[in-house]
Amino acid sequence: MYLNVVHFWDSLISSRGMFFEAAQLTLALTAVSIFIAIFIGLMFAFMKISDIKVLEWIANIYIYVVRGTPLIVQIFVFYYGLTEIWMISGFWSVALGLAFHNGAYIAEIFRGSIQSIGKGQTEAGRSLGMSQALTMRRIILPQAFRRALPPLGNQFIIGLKDSSLAAFIGVSEIFAVATTQGANTFDYMTWLLVSAVWYLILVFLLTLVVGAVEKKLAASD
Protein backbone atom coordinates (compact mmCIF):
# COMPACT_ATOMS: atom_id res chain seq x y z
CA MET A 1 0.00 0.00 0.00
CA TYR A 2 1.43 3.28 -1.08
CA LEU A 3 0.41 6.33 0.89
CA ASN A 4 2.00 9.57 1.84
CA VAL A 5 0.68 12.93 2.88
CA VAL A 6 1.82 14.86 -0.16
CA HIS A 7 0.30 12.36 -2.52
CA PHE A 8 -2.96 12.36 -0.54
CA TRP A 9 -3.11 16.17 -0.56
CA ASP A 10 -2.41 16.33 -4.31
CA SER A 11 -5.16 13.79 -4.96
CA LEU A 12 -7.60 15.71 -2.78
CA ILE A 13 -6.89 19.01 -4.53
CA SER A 14 -6.69 17.76 -8.10
CA SER A 15 -9.95 15.82 -7.83
CA ARG A 16 -11.95 18.62 -6.16
CA GLY A 17 -14.05 19.39 -9.23
CA MET A 18 -15.10 15.79 -9.64
CA PHE A 19 -15.85 15.36 -5.93
CA PHE A 20 -17.61 18.72 -5.69
CA GLU A 21 -20.06 17.46 -8.28
CA ALA A 22 -20.43 14.16 -6.46
CA ALA A 23 -20.95 15.99 -3.16
CA GLN A 24 -23.82 17.94 -4.73
CA LEU A 25 -25.43 14.65 -5.67
CA THR A 26 -24.89 13.32 -2.13
CA LEU A 27 -26.44 16.49 -0.70
CA ALA A 28 -29.39 16.34 -3.09
CA LEU A 29 -29.97 12.70 -2.21
CA THR A 30 -29.82 13.52 1.49
CA ALA A 31 -32.01 16.61 1.26
CA VAL A 32 -34.72 14.98 -0.83
CA SER A 33 -34.85 11.79 1.22
CA ILE A 34 -34.88 13.61 4.56
CA PHE A 35 -37.52 16.06 3.37
CA ILE A 36 -39.81 13.16 2.42
CA ALA A 37 -38.82 11.21 5.54
CA ILE A 38 -39.96 14.06 7.80
CA PHE A 39 -43.46 13.86 6.32
CA ILE A 40 -43.50 10.07 6.50
CA GLY A 41 -42.20 10.26 10.07
CA LEU A 42 -44.79 12.80 11.16
CA MET A 43 -47.60 10.78 9.59
CA PHE A 44 -46.55 7.51 11.25
CA ALA A 45 -45.93 9.29 14.57
CA PHE A 46 -49.55 10.48 14.51
CA MET A 47 -50.72 7.01 13.54
CA LYS A 48 -48.81 5.53 16.43
CA ILE A 49 -50.29 7.86 19.04
CA SER A 50 -53.80 7.78 17.56
CA ASP A 51 -56.62 6.03 19.37
CA ILE A 52 -57.47 4.07 16.24
CA LYS A 53 -55.98 0.62 16.75
CA VAL A 54 -55.64 -0.22 13.04
CA LEU A 55 -53.51 2.86 12.39
CA GLU A 56 -51.32 2.16 15.39
CA TRP A 57 -50.92 -1.40 14.14
CA ILE A 58 -49.90 -0.33 10.62
CA ALA A 59 -47.35 2.10 12.06
CA ASN A 60 -45.91 -0.60 14.29
CA ILE A 61 -45.51 -3.00 11.39
CA TYR A 62 -43.85 -0.36 9.23
CA ILE A 63 -41.38 0.54 11.97
CA TYR A 64 -40.71 -3.12 12.75
CA VAL A 65 -40.00 -3.97 9.10
CA VAL A 66 -37.73 -0.98 8.54
CA ARG A 67 -35.76 -1.49 11.71
CA GLY A 68 -35.60 -5.24 11.22
CA THR A 69 -34.12 -5.32 7.72
CA PRO A 70 -30.84 -3.94 6.36
CA LEU A 71 -30.94 -0.64 4.51
CA ILE A 72 -29.08 -2.11 1.54
CA VAL A 73 -31.85 -4.71 1.15
CA GLN A 74 -34.50 -1.98 1.28
CA ILE A 75 -32.70 0.09 -1.34
CA PHE A 76 -32.31 -2.91 -3.65
CA VAL A 77 -35.97 -3.80 -3.21
CA PHE A 78 -36.90 -0.26 -4.14
CA TYR A 79 -34.52 -0.28 -7.11
CA TYR A 80 -35.41 -3.66 -8.60
CA GLY A 81 -38.98 -3.83 -7.31
CA LEU A 82 -40.20 -0.34 -7.95
CA THR A 83 -38.65 -0.05 -11.40
CA GLU A 84 -40.64 -3.13 -12.45
CA ILE A 85 -43.86 -1.16 -12.22
CA TRP A 86 -42.69 2.42 -12.43
CA MET A 87 -39.62 3.46 -14.34
CA ILE A 88 -37.71 5.77 -12.06
CA SER A 89 -34.04 6.68 -12.03
CA GLY A 90 -31.46 5.18 -9.70
CA PHE A 91 -31.35 8.51 -7.91
CA TRP A 92 -35.06 8.42 -7.13
CA SER A 93 -35.16 4.80 -6.08
CA VAL A 94 -32.37 5.46 -3.59
CA ALA A 95 -34.00 8.71 -2.47
CA LEU A 96 -37.32 6.95 -1.86
CA GLY A 97 -35.57 3.98 -0.24
CA LEU A 98 -33.72 6.28 2.14
CA ALA A 99 -36.90 8.25 2.85
CA PHE A 100 -38.78 5.02 3.61
CA HIS A 101 -35.93 3.95 5.90
CA ASN A 102 -35.36 7.23 7.75
CA GLY A 103 -39.10 7.81 8.05
CA ALA A 104 -39.39 4.98 10.57
CA TYR A 105 -36.65 6.35 12.80
CA ILE A 106 -37.99 9.89 12.50
CA ALA A 107 -41.48 8.62 13.36
CA GLU A 108 -40.13 7.29 16.65
CA ILE A 109 -38.27 10.56 17.31
CA PHE A 110 -41.45 12.60 16.72
CA ARG A 111 -43.62 10.22 18.73
CA GLY A 112 -41.29 10.47 21.70
CA SER A 113 -41.02 14.24 21.56
CA ILE A 114 -44.78 14.75 21.16
CA GLN A 115 -45.48 12.46 24.12
CA SER A 116 -42.86 14.26 26.20
CA ILE A 117 -44.86 17.52 26.15
CA GLY A 118 -46.85 17.66 29.36
CA LYS A 119 -50.59 17.00 29.44
CA GLY A 120 -51.05 20.45 30.97
CA GLN A 121 -50.16 22.08 27.64
CA THR A 122 -52.98 20.25 25.87
CA GLU A 123 -55.37 21.06 28.69
CA ALA A 124 -54.43 24.74 28.59
CA GLY A 125 -55.09 24.86 24.85
CA ARG A 126 -58.37 22.97 25.09
CA SER A 127 -59.57 25.07 28.05
CA LEU A 128 -59.24 28.16 25.82
CA GLY A 129 -61.61 26.65 23.28
CA MET A 130 -58.95 25.46 20.87
CA SER A 131 -59.77 22.26 19.00
CA GLN A 132 -57.63 19.17 19.37
CA ALA A 133 -56.06 19.70 15.94
CA LEU A 134 -55.39 23.39 16.59
CA THR A 135 -53.84 22.61 19.97
CA MET A 136 -51.61 20.01 18.34
CA ARG A 137 -50.53 22.36 15.57
CA ARG A 138 -50.06 25.56 17.55
CA ILE A 139 -49.09 24.37 21.03
CA ILE A 140 -47.72 20.82 21.02
CA LEU A 141 -45.87 20.47 17.70
CA PRO A 142 -43.73 23.62 17.98
CA GLN A 143 -42.49 22.46 21.39
CA ALA A 144 -42.15 18.84 20.29
CA PHE A 145 -40.19 19.82 17.19
CA ARG A 146 -37.74 21.77 19.30
CA ARG A 147 -37.23 18.81 21.57
CA ALA A 148 -36.84 16.53 18.53
CA LEU A 149 -34.10 18.62 16.93
CA PRO A 150 -31.02 17.07 18.55
CA PRO A 151 -32.02 13.47 17.74
CA LEU A 152 -33.29 14.63 14.33
CA GLY A 153 -29.92 16.20 13.58
CA ASN A 154 -28.31 12.92 14.49
CA GLN A 155 -30.66 11.08 12.14
CA PHE A 156 -29.91 13.55 9.33
CA ILE A 157 -26.20 12.80 9.69
CA ILE A 158 -26.89 9.07 9.55
CA GLY A 159 -29.03 9.68 6.45
CA LEU A 160 -26.28 11.64 4.79
CA LYS A 161 -23.74 8.88 5.32
CA ASP A 162 -26.21 6.14 4.36
CA SER A 163 -26.67 7.83 0.99
CA SER A 164 -23.27 6.30 0.12
CA LEU A 165 -25.15 3.04 -0.50
CA ALA A 166 -26.43 4.68 -3.69
CA ALA A 167 -23.04 3.77 -5.14
CA PHE A 168 -24.23 0.17 -5.40
CA ILE A 169 -26.89 1.05 -7.94
CA GLY A 170 -24.76 3.35 -9.99
CA VAL A 171 -25.48 6.81 -8.64
CA SER A 172 -22.26 8.83 -8.93
CA GLU A 173 -22.19 10.24 -5.46
CA ILE A 174 -19.06 10.63 -3.35
CA PHE A 175 -18.44 7.00 -2.47
CA ALA A 176 -19.10 5.83 -6.05
CA VAL A 177 -16.59 8.32 -7.43
CA ALA A 178 -14.03 7.27 -4.83
CA THR A 179 -14.32 3.56 -5.65
CA THR A 180 -14.16 4.27 -9.38
CA GLN A 181 -11.01 6.34 -8.87
CA GLY A 182 -9.60 3.58 -6.71
CA ALA A 183 -10.27 0.96 -9.36
CA ASN A 184 -8.72 3.12 -12.08
CA THR A 185 -5.54 3.85 -10.12
CA PHE A 186 -5.26 0.72 -7.95
CA ASP A 187 -4.93 3.19 -5.10
CA TYR A 188 -8.09 2.53 -3.12
CA MET A 189 -6.84 3.80 0.22
CA THR A 190 -6.07 7.32 -1.01
CA TRP A 191 -9.45 7.72 -2.66
CA LEU A 192 -11.41 6.27 0.22
CA LEU A 193 -9.71 8.79 2.51
CA VAL A 194 -10.51 11.56 0.05
CA SER A 195 -14.15 10.54 0.17
CA ALA A 196 -13.96 10.50 3.97
CA VAL A 197 -12.78 14.12 3.96
CA TRP A 198 -15.73 15.11 1.79
CA TYR A 199 -18.17 13.34 4.11
CA LEU A 200 -16.61 15.11 7.08
CA ILE A 201 -17.06 18.47 5.36
CA LEU A 202 -20.72 17.76 4.56
CA VAL A 203 -21.46 16.50 8.09
CA PHE A 204 -19.76 19.60 9.48
CA LEU A 205 -22.01 21.85 7.36
CA LEU A 206 -25.11 19.88 8.36
CA THR A 207 -24.15 20.17 12.04
CA LEU A 208 -23.80 23.93 11.63
CA VAL A 209 -27.27 24.20 10.09
CA VAL A 210 -28.91 22.08 12.80
CA GLY A 211 -27.05 24.04 15.48
CA ALA A 212 -28.24 27.35 14.03
CA VAL A 213 -31.87 26.18 13.98
CA GLU A 214 -31.54 24.90 17.56
CA LYS A 215 -30.16 28.22 18.67
CA LYS A 216 -32.94 30.14 16.96
CA LEU A 217 -35.61 27.99 18.59
CA ALA A 218 -33.97 28.31 22.00
CA ALA A 219 -34.96 31.99 22.19
CA SER A 220 -37.67 31.23 24.74
CA ASP A 221 -35.29 29.74 27.34
Binding site: G120, Q121, E123, A124, R126, G129, S131, P142, S220
Partner: peptide, 22 residues
Protein backbone atom coordinates in the same frame (compact mmCIF):
# COMPACT_ATOMS: atom_id res chain seq x y z
CA UNK B 1 -67.30 21.70 23.64
CA UNK B 2 -64.80 24.12 22.09
CA UNK B 3 -67.56 26.72 22.04
CA UNK B 4 -68.58 25.92 25.64
CA UNK B 5 -64.97 26.17 26.84
CA UNK B 6 -64.70 29.67 25.35
CA UNK B 7 -67.33 30.72 27.88
CA UNK B 8 -65.74 28.85 30.79
CA UNK B 9 -62.16 29.94 31.39
CA UNK B 10 -59.74 27.97 33.53
CA UNK B 11 -56.62 28.70 35.54
CA UNK B 12 -54.42 25.77 36.52
CA UNK B 13 -52.27 25.01 39.55
CA UNK B 14 -49.14 24.75 37.40
CA UNK B 15 -50.00 27.74 35.15
CA UNK B 16 -49.46 25.74 31.93
CA UNK B 17 -48.26 28.77 30.04
CA UNK B 18 -47.05 28.11 26.51
CA UNK B 19 -43.25 28.23 26.93
CA UNK B 20 -42.56 28.83 23.22
CA UNK B 21 -44.63 32.01 23.15
CA UNK B 22 -44.04 35.39 24.75
Amino acid sequence: LNEVRQRVGMVFQHFNLFPHKT
